[in-house]
Structures are given as structure tokens and as C-alpha cells.
Design a protein around this nucleic acid. Structure first.
Lengths: 106, 106
DNA sequence: CCTCTTGTTCGATGTTCGTAGAACATCGAA
DNA sequence: TTCGATGTTCTACGAACATCGAACAAGAGG
């Protein structure tokens, strides 16, 4: 978990959007994530976030759940995540990423 | 001056080293900068920093001087630069970049 | 068993990045 | 004017990245 890896992981709008979505600390299933990219690309971006130490992924059966590592980040790089999130909010970076609305299909 | 550009500019150890060097607010001549890369590569990195809005470059005769835009950055992305600098200090990122020691040759 | 869902992995492709060398422009000094 | 120092720009190349589709693996539910 190095600074340059974290900065590189946060230099992509889609990944910033994912982090913004997870910034409330809730664990999210991958099926809830609505992005304009294919599932293989989404898998890649989530791998980058995990490799950089920004998220933790838990597998349950065939489903995967992801959560932001807020505490670990704050301990390692105090204030960094908050500053990035505030900046991302003011610029509305990553708004292309959304949550599934309503109940899951079926 | 967008967030993703700033983050991308700060995802390279050498550029972080340059920013750390300039973090005292002093204006530096390019000749003072000691890096392990060729001058064309250094010119490229300084161009990236300038394009991202992190620095301002002033030309005087054949010499160029560069300065960090602390105030502008703080106004646009409050706390971001300080958090990155603190993290870079704790990890000693970009220590390969230094200042010319002693008097200029001749 | 078969099928559907969910992710991962594997090419393949086009783009961007980091790097260096060579050529060029500009200025100051001899 | 000639030389040297200083940057910029052009070109090139390998590495890394973002993207997709296809193939694959593992459970869940018939």
C-alpha cells in the first residue's frame, strides 16, 4: 500500500466514482454497481482498487462484496481520502457510476 | 485544472519529488534541480506538472524558474496538497530528486 | 444432470506514459 | 560572430493501461 499506487488508482474517473459510491462505508454487492463499462473492465478496475489497498473484497458463493477501507487509509495517509472525496464532490467526478435502483430483478 | 489531472500528475515518484522540493514555496531554477533523468525527460515532467496546474513557470533569458501554486491548489482542492505532502514525507517518496549543493559551477 | 448467474482470466487492440537522443532555438559571454 | 549553456520539440520505442469479447470456473436452482 504505497502512496503512488493510491494516487494512480485515484487518477481514473470511473474508479473515483466507485470510491465515492463506497464512501458511506456500506458494503456493496457488485451487482448493485451500475457503470458504463463491460463486466470485465469493471472487474479490472475493482482489482486495481483492491491492489492499491483502497478496498477489501469478500466472496460469498458466487457473489462478491466490496467495502472501502476508510480506517486503514486514514491511518496510513491522514486526510488524503477526505480531501479527494471533497474535491471529487465539488467537481462531480465519476458521476457515471451509480447504484441499482429499486429491488433486485426477481 | 481538474482533479484527475492533478492525481495523475502526482502518481509518479519523480514528480512527487519535484513537488516536495518546491513545497517550501521558494522559486527554483531548473538548473538547481538534480534528478536521475535526462533533461528532455525532466522537461516532460515539468510540462505535466504545469499542464495539471500544479506549478507556474517563468522564463528569464535562457533560464526557467518554477514555483508551486500552493494558494491556487488550496482554494481548488482544500487539504489535498498538504495530505499528499505529509504522506510523501512519511514514505520518503521522490527522494531521488535533490537540489544542487553549494555554489553553481563557475 | 443441465442451465443460469456471477466473476475471473485470456488474448487482442488502441491509447497513453516514461524515457532518451538528436535537432533546434535562444541568450550570454568571450 | 562563434561558442557554450539552457530548454523545447521531434521522433522513437517499450511498458503500462483501458477496453472489449470470448472462454472459463464455481455455485445456485431447477
Amino acid at each position: 500500500m504505497t502512496l503512488t499506487d493510491v494516487m494512480a488508482a485515484l487518477s481514473d474517473p470511473l474508479r473515483i466514482g466507485l470510491v465515492r459510491l463506497l464512501s458511506d462505508g456500506h458494503e456493496r454487492g457488485w451487482g448493485e454497481l451500475r457503470t458504463p463499462v463491460s463486466k470485465s473492465t469493471l472487474s479490472h478496475h475493482l482489482r486495481v482498487l483492491r491492489a492499491a489497498g483502497l478496498t477489501r473484497t469478500r466472496q460469498e458463493g458466487t457473489r462478491c462484496y466490496v467495502v472501502l477501507r476508510r480506517e486503514d487509509l486514514h491511518a496510513r495517509f491522514p486526510g488524503l481520502l477526505d480531501a479527494v472525496l471533497a474535491a471529487a464532490d465539488s467537481e462531480d467526478v465519476g458521476s457515471q457510476v451509480g447504484l441499482a435502483t429499486g429491488r433486485p430483478p426477481k
